[in-house]
Simulated assay, not measured.
Amino acid sequence: MDAFLVSTGIVALAEIGDKTQLLSFVLAARFRKPWPIIAGILVATLANHAFAAAVGAWVTTVLGPDVLRWVLGLSFVAMALWIMVPDKLDEEEVRPLRFGVFGTTLVAFFLAEMGDKTQVATVALAAQYGDFAMVVAGTTLGMMIANVPAVLVGGRLAERLPVRLVHGIAALIFLVLGVAALLGFGG
């Protein structure tokens, strides 16, 4: 249950102001069809985070416990720093495809998540907790918590969120997880 709750909380916080949340706003404004956009986000996130969690699970089979502890600890500390860097969205990432709103969202979201903070966090969380299903479910729920409101209410919500504060809280959580891993706690 810890894996699920931590994964949900970290990704929901980390996603505020992230490139994929910005993509959600843009898709909602461009297409004005929330349900296919939400479905595309869900499917893309499940696929992307399942892949990332599989990589995290694989890492635990190749690295010994001491090396893994240092890699995870330093990864979480790096995530704490990275989350404080604001994201930008390329207009190229939102070009409509011939696959309609759902297909455009699916492809754009999947590609935008590649190498993104939340994908890297999913790898680290899966390695940390060793619970593939709970990490994927948690990170996916975290993405949906952050992005569904972005699709449904768009820009009005974005203007009211204290993005810097939310990122600071997420960075603090990553830092605590990193220090705990380096000291040998958790998992």
Rank of each mutant, 00 (worst) to 15 (best):
V26W: 12
L27Y: 07
L27K: 00
A28T: 02
A29D: 15
R30A: 14
R30L: 13
F31A: 06
F31N: 05
R32W: 08
R32F: 13
W35Y: 14
W35C: 03
P36S: 10
I37L: 10
I37G: 03
I38Q: 02
G40N: 06
G40F: 12
L42I: 12
V43D: 03
A44Q: 05
N48W: 07
H49D: 08
A50C: 13
A50Q: 05
F51M: 14
A52I: 10
A53M: 10
A54S: 12
G56V: 03
W58F: 14
W58M: 11
W58K: 03
V59K: 00
T60F: 02
T60K: 06
T61W: 03
V62Y: 09
L63R: 00
L63M: 12
L63E: 02
G64R: 01
G64N: 07
D66C: 03
V67Q: 02
V71Y: 02
L72C: 10
L72Y: 04
G73S: 07
G73C: 05
L74Y: 10
F76Q: 00
A78Y: 12
M79K: 00
A80G: 13
L81M: 12
L81P: 01
L81N: 02
W82Y: 15
I83Y: 04
I83K: 01
M84A: 13
P86C: 13
D87M: 13
L89S: 08
L89P: 06
D90Q: 09
E91R: 11
E92Y: 13
E92G: 09
E93A: 15
V94A: 13
V94P: 00
V94D: 03
R95C: 07
R95E: 15
P96Q: 11
P96M: 10
L97Y: 13
